[in-house]
Every structure is written in structure tokens, then in C-alpha cells.
Design a protein around this nucleic acid. Structure first.
Lengths: 244, 244
DNA sequence: ATAATTAAACGTCATTTAAACACTAAGTAT
DNA sequence: ATACTTAGTGTTTAAATGACGTTTAATTAT
């Protein structure tokens, strides 16, 4: 199939990756570097989201999925289209001018922004020299309007993880209660009482204790659990609780 | 300023209007009618959202705001960009073919969809022959992918009104508790116990009783209240309540 | 073997919140 | 004065939440 780009529309991918070892919520960013051919002066040196123009035959979802897969090799990950960014000047900041000149794309581009939830360990970055994980709390200098995009994605994620079981997208299939709690802490930046959290989670019918414990830990090994999406979807009736 | 349209990108506006008299949540739709010039056969006869291509100098928000204002005369209304729709075949359904031929726009168009919250009474449709309100529960035949867009907007609204005080965008400045309850009923399609609802609302510090009662009603006049956005924003701390 | 260490796991009480439920009060229209 | 209509009120029970300290099960060091 012939690949025809639409220069007016792109997708950008905010890739959240959780590192269960360091308990760090990370973002996958691409290094952007440009120096002057004549003077060797560094013109651009920062990071951007991964993204690309859409192809004419693709849906937006397909486009985003493609871009993610090209970078990470992953498909079938959780994704959410959370906002479109279309300020006519969004690519026209002074800091981005050398880059834009170099790339020679000067059309207005509206970008449809997605975020993805993955496990850092699932991504092999060895073949991707320019890609690097950054903790959400220690972001580097960012190009274009990508800082804004990231912050909006993060806000959306914070809200979403309170009401939908997307947290389990960031965890291995088998996890401990404390690992879930640590993840919530990483995302929300709040302290959570372990006993109360534990009680709450264990009582959910879709949090299923396994006949397994952690292995290879140098302490009391914790009980492992799994999340049953099936049960969740059957049991969980939306409660229209007005909470303004 | 010269107005240059971008044919690849449009905005569509899902306009929710609440009619406090009939207690009906409505949608503002545009009649789309086309008959064959030769045979007089009716080729297209349905309704669509109001929408238009974006201009090159506009932000997406400005574009949506412009489109809404052209139709309703309203500015400063609540709006939310809730999703982009970009299926390459979204305008290529058989039912839309005569219309597309007639309009002669055949480029792929990604639309950024917004919803707006207004009071039906604030909109003067006299000069807009083609525009009409429909109760959300009695939608007419819809063109393009607009049914899908509407349903997604409605779902978003249902969720949003549970956690943010957007309900008051649909009510007059002075309202009764029962009017708020009726509105929730109209949006959510659920029964709500009046006593519990009343107690809950009256205890909110940002729901302020006025020294006024309803006038001109042929029954016991109800106490009027107002919503203080100021107080809401100061008082309302986000409670990170995990509710999966 | 024993002790020290570390994180997991458990339980209670006080408070808050939600759900269920039926009657009286206050005004208007006749 | 009476009928009518909607506004407005209170209690009880169950469930969920938040605050808080101690015990248990494993590994590591001696």
C-alpha cells in the first residue's frame, strides 16, 4: 500500500512506563539534537515525544498504535486518546525554529495526543539510541508544546486511575498488594495507609489471591494476586454517585 | 484578515441545552436536506451537528467557539473538547454520498469534537430555520458519524457531571434544589431520593441560599439558591479517593 | 542454633457517608 | 374555607473510611 502522509495531522504518544523495581513512573522521550553544519554550534538539544504524521489510510488509533510499536515494539498496550492540540503557533516557538528549518515541514499541524501505559521492563531500548526514560518528576527540557501535552496527559492519568482499573496495565500479571500501593503513590504523590488500602483491595472480588508467594526476596515473601478483568467487567456496575 | 480554511481539520459541536420548563436535556441539530435537481427525489434528509473547518489563524478552541456563536449567538459558555474523530471513512457512508458530492469536499477530515452546555432559553432559533432542539432520548436520523460523536459526548457529560459542578452551567443563576435534582435525573436517567439529595446539596458551602423565593408559581414557592464558583474553587480540595 | 532484621499481614474503634423511608407545611386557585 | 400541589423535613441502619500498633514469617548475621 502506498503511504501518503497527511501533513496537517499527527499523533503524539505520551508513553508512561512504570519501573516496578525503582518504583518510578517514567516517560519515554526522544533526544532531539542539531548542530550548525558550519559553526558546529549546538542549535537544538532537548527531548520530544514520539509522534508522526498520520497516513491517509489509517484511523487515528491505528496511527498512534503504529508510532508506539515502531518505538517500543509493543502492541496491545493500553492507550487513550486524551486531547488534540492545535494552536497555530504550537510548532513556532523560537527554540524549535532551527529544527523546523532543518526538517522542512512548515505546515500547520494539529496533533492528536495519546497516552500509553506500559511496563518499562517490557521495552527494549538497546536499538533505540535516542530514546530514554525519565521519571515524571524529573523531566528534561522539552521541545515544541510537548511539556504541555505531557502535563495534560499526566493529569488525565491521575484522574483516570482513581475510577478505572488501569493501574494493572502498569503492573506484571502477578503482583503484591504493596506493589499496587507503591504504584498509586508514584502516580498520585500521596501517602496511603497500608492497612486501609490493603483491606479495600483484598475485598474486591476481581483481585484474586494466587497459590503463590514472591520468590527470591530476602525477607518475608508477599502473597501474589492477579486482576481479573472479566470479573471486574461483570461485577462492576457504575454507581452514579454525585460527588461534586 | 484573510480566512484560509484547513480542509483536513474541522470542529464539531455537540450542543447540550437544558430546558428547565420541560425538564428536558436537548441537543441542537441542523437539518440536512437535499433533493435531486432532475427527479426531485429526496436524496438526504436527516440531521447533523453544527461544525466547520478550522481557519489557519485559529486555535481549536477558538474555532469551536466561533462555530457555536454563529449558530446560537452565545459566547462564554462552558465547552469541553472531548475527542477527535478521524476514521478515514467517517464521511464516506453511503447515506452521505449525495451530500458530499453536492458539497464537493472530498478530502479526509479529522474533526475535533466539543460539547457545550447552554440553557435552551438563551438560544434564539428564530433566525435559524434549520436548527432544532431534540431531546437526547429522541434523536432523529443523523448524518456522517455524528450519532457516534453525540453518544460519546453524552457519556463524557454523564461522568463529568458527577465530579465537577458543570451542572450549574445548565441552570439559571438562581435555582431551587429540586431543579438541580430534576436536571441530574434528565442527564443520568436515574431516580434520586429527594431528601438525601437535598441534604447533600444544602450542606455544600458553595450552594448559597438567597433571601428570595420563587415568584409567580401557583403553589408553595421554593427557596432559591446560587452556586458560588469562587467558594467551590477555594474549598474543594481534590480528594484522591481510589474508587476502582 | 540463635538473635537481629526486615517487610508482610492482621484488627479495632470512631467517624463519616449513604440508602431507605412517610409525613407535614406553605402557599395558590377556586 | 377547601382543595390542591409542590416544598420541605428527620431517623435509623448499613457500609465505607481513616487513624492507629502489634504480630508474623521469612532472611541474614553472629
Amino acid at each position: 500500500m502506498e503511504l501518503i502522509k497527511n501533513l496537517n495531522i499527527s499523533v503524539d504518544c505520551v508513553v508512561f512506563g512504570y519501573d516496578i523495581i525503582s518504583k518510578s513512573l517514567n516517560l519515554l522521550l526522544i533526544h532531539r539534537y542539531l548542530e550548525s553544519k558550519s559553526t558546529k554550534e549546538v542549535l537544538v538539544n532537548d527531548y520530544v515525544l514520539t509522534g508522526y504524521h498520520i497516513y491517509e489510510h489509517e484511523t487515528l488509533d491505528q496511527s498512534a498504535t503504529r508510532v508506539l510499536e515502531e518505538l517500543t515494539g509493543l502492541s496491545n498496550t493500553y492507550k487513550k486518546q486524551f486531547k488534540a492540540f492545535g494552536d497555530p503557533n504550537r510548532l513556532k516557538d523560537e527554540k524549535d525554529a532551527p529544527w523546523i528549518d532543518n526538517e522542512a515541514f512548515n505546515q500547520r499541524t494539529v496533533t492528536i495526543a495519546y497516552y500509553f501505559l506500559v511496563k518499562t521492563e517490557d521495552v527494549d531500548l538497546n536499538s533505540k539510541q535516542k530514546a530514554k526514560w525519565f521519571p515524571v518528576s524529573e523531566l528534561p527540557k522539552l521541545g515544541f508544546d510537548h511539556k504541555k501535552i505531557i502535563l495534560e496527559a499526566y493529569e488525565d492519568l491521575k484522574l483516570k486511575c482513581l475510577t478505572e482499573p488501569i493501574i494493572f496495565e502498569l503492573l506484571p500479571d502477578k503482583f503484591t498488594i504493596n506493589e499496587v500501593q507503591d504504584l498509586y503513590k508514584s502516580i498520585l504523590n500521596v501517602e496511603i495507609d497500608n492497612r486501609n488500602f490493603r483491606r479495600k483491595l483484598i475485598h474486591k472480588k476481581y483481585i484474586i489471591p494466587l497459590d503463590e508467594k514472591q520468590v527470591g526476596v530476602s525477607k518475608k515473601p508477599a502473597q501474589l494476586y492477579m486482576f481479573s478483568k472479566d470479573i471486574y467487567e461483570k461485577m462492576h456496575q457504575k454507581n452514579y454517585l454525585i460527588n461534586i
